[in-house]
Nucleic acid binder design. Sequence first.
DNA 1: AAGTGAATTCCCGTATATGAGATTAATTTC
DNA 2: GAAATTAATCTCATATACGGGAATTCACTT
Lengths: 182, 182
Amino acid sequence: MTNLNSRLAERLKQIRAERGWSLQQLAEASGISRSTLSRVENGEVSPTAETLGALSTCYRMTISQLLAPIEAPFAPLVRKGEQSQWQDADNGFSRRVVSPPSGGLSAEVVRCDLDAYQDISYAAPSLPGHEHHLLMLSGRLTVNTSGEEYLLEAGDCLRYQLYGPSRFRTGSDAASYLIVLV
Amino acid sequence: MTNLNSRLAERLKQIRAERGWSLQQLAEASGISRSTLSRVENGEVSPTAETLGALSTCYRMTISQLLAPIEAPFAPLVRKGEQSQWQDADNGFSRRVVSPPSGGLSAEVVRCDLDAYQDISYAAPSLPGHEHHLLMLSGRLTVNTSGEEYLLEAGDCLRYQLYGPSRFRTGSDAASYLIVLV
DNA sequence: AAGTGAATTCCCGTATATGAGATTAATTTC
DNA sequence: GAAATTAATCTCATATACGGGAATTCACTT
């Protein structure tokens, strides 16, 4: 995994260069010594999660934002578990895959129409971590995911990454919404 | 930063529990010893980036996906009223960034409303290769990109990757559409 | 070119993350 | 219940990440 270290090194060098900081300044801001910073930025060592946390904090970003550009895209062969879900639509619920992923594209758009007084739950996905953008077109919808509950109205946009079970339900109003799956 | 280690520990424990793996199985799949895995999952040590990489690989996810749930969350809900709107001066064109990119997310959704008899051209993007999904909400729109011309109507979805200049125009009908930028 | 200052890298001692094996705890099987 | 099997933790030795300071390199000035 030396490859990861060298890519991380390049990334960190670039970020520090963008901010115009010296190792000394970064050391004071992060609480990490100059020597460690030098070795990390030269790919000689693999920093600990704590070190990564300190760096991302003083750069005002999350570790994910720090690492996302240097990670290999994950395997695209991932939607078997989802497709079975697409089929079990009840009566008050219709889904249409507006823009299926194909040919190397990485996003798909699904339009969903849910009647009033519907309640739909999904089990945790087999391959978690997909990024979702839920855009309300009309109506009202209550969404539970990641232990949080959101009441959405037309025009709202809810973004989340799907790691566990989720639940969608309507009250007296029907709901139409788009889900952008990345 | 012990807090980070303990949250990471919980996260890793949960993932392994979901898959029903033992430490022994995870050790063989990841190349990390059982003892190290035990200490990491108990928050006693801070794993190196290499260790995180090995774990995320054998769990079939990126490090970002591994860490995202335990990091300070970005605002996941963007209300309609909070979405920044761009009124392109005098012309009958308004854009609203429905879902701005942040927190390591890789897609953004823009809603565009174009009046009748408008003609808008874009130069080649500075960062080419972005994947676009254009979803027509209502009206009619003529799009030129990659040397092709498309006439879109409500419900249509055009997918393309933007490498060169592009042109959007309406005839007697106004157009509303979404652009999903990946 | 040489000097001055800053920034970075190298060297060493220390702290800690890791691996291999032994010990303990939990579960199953008879 | 006891033995057997598996899973998790603990012990110790090693590898390596880290901090402090010295040495080097780099940039700029005169």
